[in-house]
Nucleic acid binder design. Structure first.
Lengths: 221, 221, 221, 221
DNA sequence: GGCTAATCGAGACGGTACGTCCTGTCTTTGC
DNA sequence: GCAAAGACAGGACGTACCGTCTCGATTAGCC
């Protein structure tokens, strides 16, 4: 506990990192930004969250570990959470780029089971879990950050499922009247539910059951 | 964001709220506890979380608003999150007690749609949402609190669904080989997913779709 | 150089250390004040000013050296300068108490020469000089502090001279029409001038000359 | 209070403003110096010290107000105090040049009273007082700056008094055995004392008294 | 009259200290 | 002996400046 001052409301979020040309007040000049510092901050942030947890990770701590002045963090990010989000995206882009699509062997059930099992493994991987949980939790509270979290981190992954299901619909394996997006959530929603809320253990068997039940729900009648 | 010092790990300090008699060091005598202060603290905590958000709610603030010494809070709760959890339980017990079971009209689909729609309404009710989100987020990060959150707040509700589904199985409306618990998560998982992660709006139509898809998945073949 | 934020204008000076009963806003309860911390802060402040100079002495440094939280300093003093002023007074009270009057051997010139020579020695004593200069300089800039400096530190000493001169007037050694106070300043003004402004070295010979010239100026005609 | 980092000691850094040709490292080429910037900096420095006080005047503030880069200040001056000192000298040179000698009507007492009264007026003139006090205070703490302050600002003025007194000695109005320099300090020392240390108000009447007492002290016997 | 080198405005950088806020502990006083 | 009150050591917050460094863009002074 013991959070000090939620920045919600300050709202200079998403300031000008992406659109530096239209700022009204006092935008830093991103063309002169130190790439070295940016990377060092990402590394320090991810490392500290992994070691100490989100709540015990401080901006001062990140700055010190990165060998950077505090102002360099405050200049470019509006909050600790956004530092972590960008750090995560930077890392995630590589992962996403390396495997841009879900497998399609023609056997939808086998493909989905494989992917959901892999997701279970990822969500229980210690190195991945800590910062991801931290971000998710922060997004639960802060609508602004939550929206970014969903859009930048979650949606790209969900769209892969949507494409795979549409392919299955085209192949006549899934009811064409089904909304693919809702069907995707039928799969990943329960998984996320167990992971976030810790109601029951997250296992491969559970992943398999979900695929089976969900596919029955969306099968061609 | 901007939480200061996560209590993660510190939380399992004494836990003598529930078992004050076996404590090792110096348990306060709960028989002399001020009921007046306890209630005032709950009220203040819920009010402040609603007004300022979880992160901007402080123990000092709760104490001041409740007209109570800080030590009175530290004496009886190990963390800000647990104060809020108990405050919520206190309030929720009344709600749960007032309506202890899901409706059973014989029409499973109609019953579930009604309940899920009501859940959607509850999750988007401003007075309810703020502290509930705060607790959920805290539980996402803190395994200890998360376990309590799941056990005390979530499970009782989920069990109502399980009972209703078992009744439907007994009535031959649902495949008897289906695991009722997993089926429940097929319903509430996606709902929770949208609520927590804000991927898409949470609507009655979505609740209806979930019921339809899920029921097809668990229907008698 | 590089002073950061002069407190002039903030003006919550002389808050309630002396009159804790009439405060309007949020006066700390001085009856519960830690004597231990107070003394440690005085010691640390004087030591640091002596070692590093006034400008390089920081509140954080004083707090750290005294083993005290910063807030304990901010709670009781409005500025670094006032900490030092009180530290100095605490020390000075003992000195003043030990020798409450100027010598009176009947020979005014000899008495004054002795006292002024002693003053020269004091003003050039390294341990005494650093904090005294620091306070004087701060008082030069800050009218509020300067007034306190004059009233609490300077005036008591000047009054000793006034009494001695009045005794000399009563003894017929000094023109009774002379204003004793002005005569005192004729003696100590030039001394202070050389010390503060460093125009020329401060020596016993200079002290003697001042006494001679000044006594000629106020002698019985 | 709240000065941040006194530059004491750092001040003798390069001093290449006056001797740019012998520097060891990399002296800036003063022939290419921007006169425009130099004046703008002086103006900004004096204005800010007058408006906000010495402690709240920052190098960044001077640069911003002067429309100048920070480095332009750091390139040519070793400290904030020296900027102010030079700004003052620039202004003072004009004043000194316009009236290079004390009046000599033959009536020493009248001449001195006139000059001391004028000094009193100057020292209480708001526009003059703020930066002059600031410099004096800085010189009280920083020996290096204090020496410059005395040599460049004070001594020229004091020498005018010395010359006038020597003239009076030659005219047989003052004891020829008196040290003129000490006699000058007998006059201006007490005045400065009251001004710097704020013991009592600085008035024309006080100036007159000082002249009278001092002249009696140095009169021909 | 073009070349070149240094100064210029600008401002990002690694730092330090600020003064505030809150933590969790401890002590005093009253009930 | 719990409670209200609040002082305490500690530590992070976000801000303000420090003095250094690095960017183009003038702008000399020398060819």
């Amino acid at each position: 506990m013991a959070e000090k001052a939620e920045n919600s409301g300050k709202a200079q979020k998403s300031r000008n990192v992406e659109r530096p040309e239209q700022s009204e007040a006092k935008a830093p000049d991103s063309s002169r930004r130190s790439e070295r510092s940016r990377r060092a901050i990402y590394d320090a942030a991810l490392a500290l969250v992994g070691e100490a947890g989100y709540g015990r990770t401080t901006i001062e701590g990140i700055a010190a570990r990165a060998g950077v002045g505090k102002q360099t963090i405050y200049r470019w990010w509006p909050s600790k959470a956004e530092v972590l989000l960008e750090a995560f995206l930077e890392r995630g882009d590589r992962a996403a780029a390396s495997d841009p699509a879900l497998p399609d062997t023609g056997d939808l059930e086998a493909d989905l089971k494989q992917v959901l099992r892999a997701t279970v493994d990822e969500l229980t991987d210690p190195g991945f879990e800590a910062p991801y949980r931290a971000l998710a939790a922060e997004g639960v509270i802060d609508p602004d950050l939550g929206a970014q979290f969903a859009r930048k981190l979650l949606e790209p992954g969900l769209q892969l499922y949507v494409h795979r299901l549409r392919a299955a619909q085209d192949a006549g394996q899934v009811d064409p009247d089904i909304d693919a997006r809702t069907a995707v959530e039928l799969l990943v929603g329960p998984l996320t539910h167990r992971w976030l809320l810790r109601t029951l253990p997250l296992t491969h068997a559970y992943a398999d059951s979900l695929v089976e039940y969900a596919l029955r729900g969306i099968a061609v009648r």
